[in-house]
Design a protein around this nucleic acid. Structure first.
Length: 492
RNA sequence: GGCGUUAUGGUGUAACUGGUUAACACGUCGCCCUCUCAAGGCGAAGAGUCCGGGUUCGAGCCCCGGUAACGCUACCA
């Protein structure tokens, strides 16, 4: 194996690019660049049920926006391609055969229904929900008969019944997990696509990854990966598990409780260098020379650093293991610092790029042109598109015939419906109307509610067009903020 | 429930191989500046380091035992 450091991130194209991807991406990037190594981007698109076609391009764009660029990847190529897992199915198939042949894996003919039933029974009996090993005990004749009958199957890892897997986490030391607690994980789904566990190990080996730097949530399944490396007779990479970014309530960061889409941050006017700086603060890898002998200015500057500073001073061994809360308040402060540090020209350019772009003004024009008598009135009717915070009055958003609880519950469902919708007027319209019909709300009630949340008032340019140009990320964020604010009022 | 990880003010982090009144930043509060609001300046409150034992002259740092939070527990990643 080559001695060059090679690391990777492997995001799934299942939606908007995630702030957690940027965090782990940044860490991997720094690790590679500090050691003269390579940073690889691999697309983990093996789950066809959650695949979102537009997602991959957005991931590329968002990472590049932040300045996290890759040496090898689907779009730039490289010596170990393809870098899209959906294009590597033959590789996984061949490796799966190897595992079956050497007894490290076996075919499983159990149906999803059977598995589901058994899992529920195990849970009801207060047992750990594990695969019961039915197909592991199949004779060769039975397997052949099933195969001949054309039954569909998955391939599972044959985890040793006894013993334990011990592996080293570079930040935590040795971690031991007993094999009684490791499930016979599915490696190859019945649709012929591998699961994360298989694809990840095979690709990491083939792509000569030396250090696996990923989120803490993977610690529990690391034994499966170690077992796979052993089954193939491959050398293990080093494992570095990074703390998970958290919501204010300390749970794993999620869109319900925090904006997590990088698209949102970009469109809301956060600067990439501020986001990068903030992510670098999470986990404390930067030595912080803050001290009471310093001036306030020096102390503040100690927390303000660029990518170049991080490449120079970031120390992986310093990373603290408690899950850091992704605190929007501090991110905003940092962003403000960067914004103020801009020259007048640069600031003006940022406004032109992000909120007053020609493209945006062009989209806005049809909404306002025949509704104004003077240009000054544009602000009167379209102010909500240029605001971050709109506060709708209660007597406007709540329909006369609905209760507060009912309305908020409806809003929650509307949010969920819109999250799943493609962001084009017909699709948005369809999603709203489907919910209105299902919940027996009138079109007027529903549209007025949404209009008020989005614009703060009961009259505005056409709602669907407004949503369209305002964008999905910020529209949904506005709804979530509305719900959050109302929940707080309900509590007090 | 099982397994794993983690644990310093509200939040993010400091505190050299255990060594004096636990430091910095954000936030909060007050004052100054100012036509207002920010920004900026000055100052304050806020933790005794999850809890309980132990080792030690001395423990946030070491040992033991708890607790809590989080993660995993899918033909998702």
């Amino acid at each position: 194996m080559s001695s060059t450091v090679r690391v990777r991130i492997a995001p799934s194209p299942t939606g908007d690019p995630h702030v957690g991807t940027a965090y782990i991406g940044l860490l991997n990037y720094i690790y590679a660049k500090q050691r003269g190594g390579k940073f690889i981007l691999r697309i983990e698109d093996t789950d066809r049920t959650r695949f979102v076609p537009t997602s991959e391009a957005m991931i590329f764009e968002a990472l590049r926006w932040l300045g996290i660029d890759w040496d090898e990847g689907p779009d730039v190529g490289g010596p170990h391609g393809p870098y899209r897992q959906s294009e590597r199915t033959e590789i996984y198939r061949a490796h799966t055969s190897t595992l079956i042949e050497n007894g490290s894996a076996y075919r499983c003919f159990c149906t999803p229904e059977e598995l589901d039933q058994r899992r529920k029974a195990q849970l009801a009996a207060k047992m750990a929900p594990r695969y019961d090993g039915t197909c592991r005990r199949l004779t060769k004749e039975q397997v052949d008969a099933n195969l001949a009958a054309g039954k569909s199957f998955t391939v599972r890892l044959a985890v040793p019944a006894e013993g334990a897997t011990v592996f080293r986490d570079e930040l935590r030391g040795e971690i031991t997990i007993d094999h009684h607690n490791v499930d016979d994980q599915v490696l190859m789904k019945s649709d012929g696509f591998p699961t994360y566990h298989l694809a990840n190990v095979v690709d990491d080996h083939l792509m000569e990854i030396t250090d696996v730097i990923r989120a803490e949530e993977w610690i529990s399944s690391t034994p499966k990966h170690v077992l796979l490396y052993k089954a193939f007779g491959w050398e293990l990479p080093k494992f570095w598990h990074m703390p998970l970014l958290r919501n204010t309530d300390k749970s794993k960061i999620s869109k319900r409780k925090n904006p997590v889409s990088l698209i949102y941050y970009r469109q809301a006017g956060f600067l990439p260098q501020a986001m990068l700086n903030f992510l670098g603060l999470m986990g404390g890898g930067m030595p912080a020379p803050g001290d009471h002998n310093n001036t306030p200015e020096q102390n503040r500057a100690a927390e303000i650093f660029s990518m170049a500073d991080m490449l120079e001073r970031f120390v992986f061994e310093r990373i603290s293991l408690g899950g850091p809360v992704f605190d929007l308040v501090k991110l905003k402060w940092l962003n403000g610092e960067y914004l103020r540090a801009l020259s007048k020209e640069e600031f003006a350019q940022q406004m032109r790029d992000v909120i007053f772009s020609d493209a945006f003004l062009a989209k806005l024009t049809p909404l306002v042109q025949n509704r104004v008598e003077t240009l000054a009135q544009v602000g009167d009717i379209a102010d909500f598109l240029f605001k971050d915070n709109v506060v709708p009055a209660e007597d406007v958003w709540m329909p006369k015939k609905r209760s507060r609880e009912e309305t908020l519950a409806f809003t929650g469902e509307l949010l969920a419906a819109l999250e799943g919708a493609e962001w084009a007027e017909p699709a948005i319209d369809a999603a709203i109307r489907a919910l209105l019909t299902a919940k027996e709300w009138s079109v007027k009630e529903g549209f007025t509610l949404l209009r008020t949340i989005m614009t703060g008032t009961a009259s505005s340019p056409p709602l669907l067009e407004s949503l369209g140009i305002f964008g999905k990320a910020r529209s949904l964020d506005r709804m979530r903020r509305f719900l959050d604010a109302q929940k707080k009022i309900s509590k007090s």
